[in-house]
């Protein structure tokens, strides 16, 4: 199978790239994995487009939830997990509310993110969030701007969370350690030299 042509011009070659979908591109187990993790009937998608039509992310980005549903059905594991768009879902659940097949596309996306993490495919900002939660208990920790805003509103400088009760931090760290989240985040970021 000639999957590559050689015209010596990289731009032209990219345009003329073979776009056939080959059996080798698919992993039939991927759909089962997605179903197992998401606990939804991901195989029942009939591609009506209600999800993308409902999606607040779609008109503002290249994220297409329906495309990920299709990749799941076809078992296009690599294509799904390596697409950075996977991380653009805000998990608002509008698609899940409206899906006429009663599938939870949001949970399919979450499942794919989980599976991607197993291959160390995670955007850096997600890993840094893990580190922040580990050290402060917050994905977005309090800062001085917030503190003065809170004071103006007559609130305490720090909210009644781990910021005020640092004694709960060891418990949070124990949970994160159990799933090796921090360990993996540190490792992946270190491998990337950050």
């Amino acid at each position: 199978m000639a999957t590559e042509k050689n015209y010596g011009n990289p731009e032209l070659e990219a345009k003329l790239r073979d776009r056939y979908l080959y059996t080798d591109d698919t992993n039939p187990e991927f759909l089962n994995d997605v179903k197992k993790v998401s606990r939804t009937i991901a195989h029942m998608c009939y591609q009506c487009g209600t999800c993308t039509g409902s999606c607040p992310s779609a008109p503002r980005s290249s994220y297409r939830i329906r495309l990920f549903m299709r990749r799941g059905v076809l078992g296009l594991e690599k294509e799904a997990l390596n697409d950075p768009d996977l991380w653009l879902c805000t998990t608002c659940y509008s698609c899940t509310d409206r899906c006429p097949r009663d599938i939870a596309p949001t949970d399919v996306i979450m499942a794919m993110r989980n599976l991607a993490f197993k291959y160390d495919i995670v955007p850096r900002n997600f890993l840094k969030t893990v580190q922040l939660i580990y050290t402060t208990g917050h994905g977005v920790p309090n800062n001085d701007v917030n503190r003065s805003a809170r004071e103006k509103l007559g609130l305490s400088r720090d909210p009644p969370t781990t910021h005020s009760y640092p004694e709960f931090m060891p418990g949070i760290q124990k949970i994160i350690d159990h799933y090796k989240l921090k360990e993996n985040a540190d490792r992946i970021l270190a491998e990337e030299g950050q």
Binding site: Q47, C48, G49, T50, T52, G53, C55, P59, R66
Partner: peptide, 12 residues
């Protein structure tokens, strides 16, 4: 609001 599924673009 819908998606033109053949174009792959959300539509308003």
């Amino acid at each position: 609001f819908t998606e033109d599924t053949l174009l792959g673009r959300p539509l308003s």
